[in-house]
Amino acid sequence: LVRYRTISKIPQITLNFVDLKGDPFLASPTSDREIIAPKIKERTHNVTEKVTQVLSLGADVLPEYKLQAPRIHRWTILHYSPFKAVWDWLILLLVIYTAVFTPYSAAFLLKETEEGPPATECGYACQPLAVVDLIVDIMFIVDILINFRTTYVNANEEVVSHPGRIAVHYFKGWFLIDMVAAIPFDLLIFGSGSEELIGLLKTARLLRLVRVARKLDRYSEYGAAVLFLLMCTFALIAHWLACIWYAIGNMEQPHMDSRIGWLHNLGDQIGKPYNSSGLGGPSIKDKYVTALYFTFSSLTSVGFGNVSPNTNSEKIFSICVMLIGSLMYASIFGNVSAIIQRLYSGTARYHTQMLRVREFIRFHQIPNPLRQRLEEYFQHAWSYTNGIDMNAVLKGFPECLQADICLHLNRSLLQHCKPFRGATKGCLRALAMKFKTTHAPPGDTLVHAGDLLTALYFISRGSIEILRGDVVVAILGKNDIFGEPLNLYARPGKSNGDVRALTYCDLHKIHR
């Protein structure tokens, strides 16, 4: 019993810090008490220290592992850092350059016999395009090294910054494609005289377009951006097909006994025919423009016929181009109408809503002055909100995010209106959640004399007048207030005048 009563005193000691020596009952000389009392004092002292730490809000209350900052290894790049964003855009520009100039170089340097010394005699450094290609190869190699040090988000939505895990993730992902696209074939085969082989191998750079397509997928929600990307894709495919079309004609031209190829026909049409040795002929500019003209006309199913396939190889390629053109029509131009419709969806919704308003007016036989006010209010409210119901949009977000959005939407009023000066951010967040926005066209009466005042109004834009009878008592403008002081009276009061809008007004109100 003594032991039980001794232990039962522990909660009292913990909360009230009572010393055991003052209790005459606990001072009985028993061996059990002498053993338990020192333990009680020690526990009391420890609990006292913990309570003191909690009340003082000291940093040592938290466990040590929670006080440590997340460790980022040296030379690790955050995937959302500004440097990584700028670097990704730079790589994107280099990939676009590669997609345009690599097929052009591979096709127009394929057994090209233009006048001038061969590239091997001039030297590697004197070729501007080769120098640019070398810079692109170096940048792609540097990009691989950067990807080995860039964080990523795993399946659990955690940012991984450990170098080993980053390397394994990159090896399992895009490393092989990036490595093949970054191989400097110019340096590996330079001086061997195989410019045709170098041009063909350099087309491996186009593998990076797969990554670019995935990154550009984030802009699919913007109709104008999608339309622009589709047109660029169409032009890029036409450019690639033009390079292939020229390569076919250029390879067949020296081996044909009869002059029936499209390059021969082009030379005869523009007065620059090929001679018996295969030299001469149109310039590279004429060849490229004509090839691009043929691919565009074939892809769009126009086909004027002034550039036509004559050999079997050219006919087979033309059939493939027609098939590609039909697929592009289905996948690209078939979506253009939907994209344009999405661009004008706001206008369509406006006309639909206006039609419903006019049908309501016609069905209920609203008189002319009231009908005009109804239409003007709808037009003004639509121009202010673009038909978007803010309350319906915010309803799907958590309250903390709703408060931040409301604070942002009402920031101008909260910053410049005098009653809100000096208020804490928590108070402003709470008030912003209570605001209701209303609009009024010129001549609209917001409050009639004798109406119950259940709200306090803040003028965000425009001006109003307060009338008693036919006498203008006051004219209020931006950041002015009218209405009933909230919670100042037990019952809502009545208006002693009319409140009429002089201009288009936007008002925020808080109800009782």
Rank of each mutant, 00 (worst) to 15 (best):
Q68V: 09
W75L: 08
I77D: 01
I77A: 01
V86N: 01
V86H: 01
I96L: 07
L110A: 14
T113Y: 04
P117R: 14
C122Y: 01
A125Q: 07
P128G: 05
V131E: 01
V136I: 14
I144R: 01
T150H: 01
A155G: 14
E157T: 11
H162A: 14
P163F: 06
Y170V: 01
F171T: 05
K172P: 01
G173P: 01
W174V: 04
L176P: 08
D178T: 01
V180G: 11
A181E: 01
A182M: 09
L187P: 09
F190H: 09
S192I: 06
E195W: 14
E195G: 14
L197G: 03
L201Q: 01
K202A: 01
T203S: 05
R205F: 01
R211W: 01
K215Q: 04
L227D: 01
F234Y: 05
W245Y: 01
Y246A: 01
N250C: 14
P254D: 15
H264C: 03
D268P: 01
P273W: 01
P273L: 01
Y274I: 03
L279M: 08
L279I: 07
L279V: 09
A291E: 01
S297W: 01
L299F: 01
L299I: 03
L299S: 01
T300R: 03
G303V: 01
V307H: 01
S313N: 14
S313T: 14
A330M: 05
F333L: 12
G334P: 04
I340Y: 08
A348E: 08
H351L: 03
R362I: 03
Q365P: 01
P369V: 03
L370N: 01
Q372H: 09
E375I: 15
Y377F: 05
H380L: 05
Y384A: 11
N391K: 05
A392R: 10
V393N: 03
L394T: 03
P398L: 01
A403Q: 10
C417T: 12
P419H: 12
A423E: 01
R429C: 06
A432L: 06
P441K: 08
G443S: 03
G443Y: 01
T445S: 06
L446M: 06
V447Y: 12
V447G: 03
V447S: 02
A449H: 12
